[in-house]
């Protein structure tokens, strides 16, 4: 809840603790961390059962958009849009728990479970998919009712022209101080809004479009993604976008004050300096 700005205590002069994140935001954030971690790892397990992606309704086995294959002797090859990359050790071929090279799309250390099991990967994936949707529903309802989404995530009219400057500040590791640190900057808003309003809804819809029963109930799901195999590809691309988002997000959290950021997402309290830097 950036910008709520109610002073809490005075730990030391020039530094104030403000109330930054509501309880709903904090709880749903950490539930999301668990859900996305399990969904990514079990999703890669499911992908490994047929490590190839296609476009359209069906699988054109001879022309995948992306494929991870194993060649003799023990060479992993990843093909992306017709370009071959040797990825032995990570993609296509990686070592199993006993150190033996095996044919696998993604390596065991990043899948759930670590051993090859499509059945168990699906169990994990669907349980946490339900949890993700329930959690997201709570977040969006609370965000709409409290106006958090509108107030804190949607960029203001004047903010759009600040994008260039904000990108430069981030690149130089200059983060906002003082009053400016109360609210999300425009890059944060766009990143969070993009994930909340675009990537997560699209990944859920693409997941639903892979269900043959839901394709019967809602044929528009297939039309939306141009087919079931494209839905699977979009689902995968969205997962990679989320991975990219999380990497940048965690990097920014670390660079802009890891303890302050972590405390704000656990207790809600965020310290801002009153020294006027960055004004």
């Amino acid at each position: 809840m950036a910008g709520a700005g109610r002073a809490a205590s005075e730990p030391r002069p020039g530094r104030r603790l403000i109330h930054r994140h509501s309880a709903v935001v904090r709880v749903t954030h950490w539930v999301n961390v668990v859900c996305l971690t399990v969904l990514l790892m079990s999703g890669l397990q499911i992908f490994n059962a047929h490590p190839a992606l296609y476009w359209g309704q069906q699988s054109d086995f001879d022309h995948p958009l992306l494929a991870m294959t194993a060649e003799e002797p023990a060479r992993g090859v990843t093909t992306v849009l017709g370009h071959r990359f040797v990825t032995t050790g990570v993609l296509g071929v990686s070592n199993d728990a006993s150190g033996q090279p095996v044919a696998r799309g993604f390596p065991g250390w990043i899948t759930l479970p670590g051993w090859q099991s499509l059945a168990e990967g699906r169990l994990w994936h669907f349980f946490f998919a339900w949890l993700l949707v329930a959690n997201g529903t709570v977040y969006v309802l609370a965000g709409v009712i409290s106006a958090h989404l509108w107030r804190d995530l949607v960029p203001r009219r004047g903010e759009w022209r600040l994008i260039g400057r904000t990108v430069r500040d981030h690149a130089l590791l200059r983060f906002p101080h003082g009053e400016e640190a109360r609210a999300y900057n425009v890059l944060q808003k766009l990143a969070y809004l993009g994930v909340v309003a675009i990537v997560l809804p699209v990944i859920v819809l693409a997941g639903l479009a892979m269900s043959p029963r839901l394709d019967a109930a809602f044929p528009w799901l297939l039309a939306l993604f141009d087919g079931r195999q494209s839905a699977r590809t979009v689902h995968f691309i969205c997962a990679m976008l989320l991975v990219g988002f999380v990497l940048v997000h965690v990097l920014m959290v670390v660079l802009s004050g890891v303890w302050n950021n972590l405390r704000s997402m656990v207790t809600g309290r965020y310290a801002i300096e009153d020294d006027g830097h960055g004004q």
């Binding site: 059962a49 006993s98 759930l112 670590g114 090859q116 499509l118 994990w124």
Partner: peptide
Amino acid sequence: SDDKPRAPGRRAVTTAALGSLLLGGCDRLA
């Protein structure tokens, strides 16, 4: 699918996968 979850190697796999506490915990739960 042709890839069957095979029980015999499971304990060995689980034990050896304890490279990190987190992953080991995941597999034990799984």
